[in-house]
């Protein structure tokens, strides 16, 4: 296992230490004798600095990425990371929900940059459109006057920060390692080369002559035709003109052929969740005692006759 270079290790540690200190200062809790306002300003500065150093760790390799899409990538990535820290540390749950909406918008921008147009639209509609609005409704239903004590007090902020950023450290350490090393030396992983999708058989270094018909059938079954990204996506990223509508059509083709059962399962899951929410949400008698209902005495059978 190769160790990463000293500079990279230093960068990763800088991201972790600055981010952990900033987040710890931003989390709501009394800071001893320090004035809270000063602690917050230092916290904002440190977490923004940590996110900026994380941006400096981004590499684009030999691919000729346009300067504009690079700029958009940096903006979205910074927005996602900084918005995430602010979501977690805001005192007001409404601010948290709005910062989470910002994170979702930045993420959908990243989806768009990686050629997932349908998902970008779907994320904005489902998350930023539906889920956030429902959240705001619930927050406003359940909010009281003033800032509640549980919003001003995080539970063991030091340990939580330590755990979260230790996880981030291990992940970043290994990711920087493989970023430097690149894909496997045999380059079996290069599914996309020279602007075209490499078929499975070719990718594994076997030409069609060395493959028996059964073997090639297996390879083609492993990644079916509908499941391959259209070459249009690749060409689009290179700036050449492609016909519109290829992309979502391709996603629909694979969704309704290869993953038909998945679609049905997702629909069933939504239905079950709908029933569950309807069964849970309405208030019941012991929870909200109202004016006691006067029950009339049952008519005696003697009077009926």
């Amino acid at each position: 296992m190769d160790a990463i270079s000293r500079l990279d290790l230093f960068t990763v540690i800088a991201v972790i230490v600055l981010g952990a200190t900033g987040t710890y200062l931003l989390l709501p809790h009394g800071h001893g004798r320090t004035r809270p306002k000063l602690a917050h300003q230092v916290g904002y500065a440190l977490s923004a600095l940590s996110a900026l150093i994380l941006m400096a760790m981004m590499r684009f390799g030999k691919a000729d990425v346009e300067i504009l899409s690079k700029a958009f990538f940096y903006v979205f990535a910074f927005g996602a990371v900084f918005g995430a820290i602010l979501t977690v540390t805001s005192r007001d749950p409404i601010h948290s929900a709005l910062w989470f909406a910002a994170v979702v918008l930045a993420t959908s921008g990243l989806f768009l940059l990686s050629g997932a147009q349908f998902l970008a639209a779907g994320t904005v509609i489902v998350y930023a459109g539906a889920i956030i609005v429902t959240f705001l409704f619930v927050i406003m239903l359940a909010q009281k006057e003033g800032r509640a004590i549980y919003d001003r007090m995080a539970r063991s902020p030091f340990l939580a920060t330590l755990a979260g950023f230790l996880l981030l450290f291990t992940l970043l350490y290994s990711l920087v390692g493989i970023q430097k090393k690149g894909p496997a030396a045999t380059d079996h992983n290069a599914y996309v080369a020279g602007g075209r999708i490499v078929p499975a058989s070719e990718r594994l270094g076997m030409n069609s002559r060395s493959l028996s018909p059964d073997q090639s059938k297996v390879f083609n079954r492993a990644v079916s035709d509908a499941n391959r990204l259209p070459e249009a996506t690749i060409a689009e990223a290179k700036g050449t003109h492609v016909a519109d509508g290829t992309h979502v059509a391709g996603l629909g083709a694979t969704l309704f052929t290869d993953h038909l059962v998945t679609v049905e399962l997702a629909g069933a899951l939504l239905f079950v969740a709908l029933i569950g929410a309807l069964a849970l949400a309405p208030p019941r008698a012991p929870i909200r005692p109202t004016v006691p209902v006067i029950v009339s005495e049952p008519a005696s059978p003697a009077r009926l006759t």
């Binding site: 987040t23 989390l27 994380l54 760790m57 981004m58 590499r59 684009f60 390799g61 030999k62 691919a63 000729d64 990425v65 990538f73 990535a77 996602a80 990371v81 995430a84 820290i85 979501t87 977690v88 540390t89 994170v103 993420t107 990243l110 990686s114 050629g115 995080a154 539970r155 063991s156 902020p157 340990l159 939580a160 920060t161 755990a163 979260g164 950023f165 996880l167 981030l168 992940l171 970043l172 990711l175 920087v176 493989i178 970023q179 690149g182 894909p183 992983n189 290069a190 996309v192 080369a193 020279g194 602007g195 690749i234 990223a237 290179k238």
Partner: peptide, 29 residues
């Protein structure tokens, strides 16, 4: 060459790791 290089993939992985870790921090604290 590749429109979506290996380095781009690691960029996305690092961002995903950051969101995951910060979300865990918030859930815990």
């Amino acid at each position: 060459m590749n429109a979506f290089s290996f380095e781009m993939l690691t960029n996305y992985l690092m961002l995903g790791a950051a969101l995951m870790a910060v979300g865990m921090l918030g859930f815990l604290s």
